[in-house]
Structure formats: C-alpha cells, structure tokens
C-alpha cells in the first residue's frame, strides 16, 4: 500500500511562523500559507517543502538560515507552546525529541519514508551526545531544532550541534 508522507499541521505552522518571525519569508504568500494550515490536521510533506524551497531559492547560504529557523521554531514551541510543560532541562529535549512523543508524533507514513531520529549515545557528565537522523527534513534545520530546544529551558550555557555534511545522518552534540 502506498502511503503519503504527512506532517502534523502544528509543525508546518511552527515552521512558517518561524520564517515569518525572522522575516525570512514575508508578505501575502506566507500569510496565506499560514491561514490555510490547521494545527491539528495532517498535510503532505510537499506543503512543508514548498516553504523550504522558498528559503533555499532565496538564500545563497541557506544553511545558517535554516539553522536559525529550527532554533526559532523551538523557541516558540517552548515559550508559547506546550514546551514548558514537557521539558525542564535542556537535556530533556534530547530525550523528548528522540522519543515517540517527539519527532515520531508529528510525522506519519511508512517507516522508510518517516526515517528515524534516534539518540545513539549520551553522556550527561561529559556533555556529549550523538543523534542519528534519517528523517526527510533538512539536517541544518534539525541542528537548529536541537540547539533551540536544548537552550530554551535556560539551564545550559553551551550547546553546539555539528553535522558536517548535509548527507550525513550523524549529528554530534556538545552541551554544558
């Protein structure tokens, strides 16, 4: 059975709103886009890709922008969304995001399509973690999500997230 890959409305809205907040995309186009999205509905991944395409086409160095969008999304999620009730510490976000309530709860499709966002290792004392991501999302944006989510509670002074190549599934995190 062929199943379409779908993303949760709240996630699409969060992404569009972050772009709007950062003035990355402006005007009628994104406002109309936001008006069409219902937070509790599911949308084909192509809706998400429409926005991502605009960013990628507009910027010569889109990596820094997508990272910032990811950070802004999580900042809003924590401060204006449900984040505060879900996580207390920066590290909690790592566990949350890699659990069934995190990434897995906002995307649906076949396992091949959805991919994984898996916490491969974590050492809280050393402040090191490794995540393997095989999701269809942009890795730089995912790095931003991790930075934003882990910094949002305010207990961490330092969060560095490195993904050396966009093709790489491995994301290394250092936090203190």
């Amino acid at each position: 059975m062929c199943q379409t890959l779908e993303v949760f409305g709240a996630l699409v809205m969060g992404y569009a709103q972050a772009c709007l907040n950062l003035n990355i995309i402006a005007g009628k186009k994104v406002t109309n886009f936001l008006n069409e999205i219902q937070p509790t509905s599911w949308y084909p991944l192509s809706r998400w890709s429409e926005l991502e395409k605009i960013v990628l086409q507009s910027y010569t160095n889109a990596d820094a922008i997508l990272t910032r969008v990811g950070m802004e999304m999580m900042f809003s999620w924590y401060n204006y969304g449900p984040g505060k009730g879900i996580i207390n510490r920066g590290v909690d976000f790592l566990h949350f995001q890699t659990s069934s309530e995190g990434y897995a709860s906002v995307i649906k499709g076949t396992s091949d399509q959805v991919g994984n966002f898996e916490l491969k290792s974590i050492n809280e004392d050393d402040g090191k973690a490794v995540v393997q991501s095989t999701t269809p999302f942009n890795r730089k944006m995912e790095c931003g999500v991790l930075i934003g989510g882990m910094k949002a509670p305010g207990d961490l002074d330092y969060v560095d997230v490195v993904n050396n190549s966009n093709n790489s599934d491995i994301i290394t995190i250092e936090f203190h």
Binding site: S58, D63, A64, V159, H176
Partner: peptide, 30 residues
C-alpha cells in the same frame, strides 16, 4: 568551569548570529 562554558556559549552564539546576519545581508544584497 561554568564561567568557561558561559563564555564559550556566548562566543558560539556570537558566531551563529554573525553567520545568520551575513547570510541575511547577502540575501538582501541579492
């Protein structure tokens, strides 16, 4: 140690902000 990481964290934020604003400026020029 906390002071060290706080400093390093601020430095990293500064670098990230720089990269972001550089990309934004390049986009504006374009």
């Amino acid at each position: 140690v906390k002071f060290f990481w706080k400093y390093k964290g601020l430095q990293l934020d500064f670098e990230r902000n720089n990269t972001f604003w550089k990309a934004t400026n390049e986009n504006l020029t374009l």
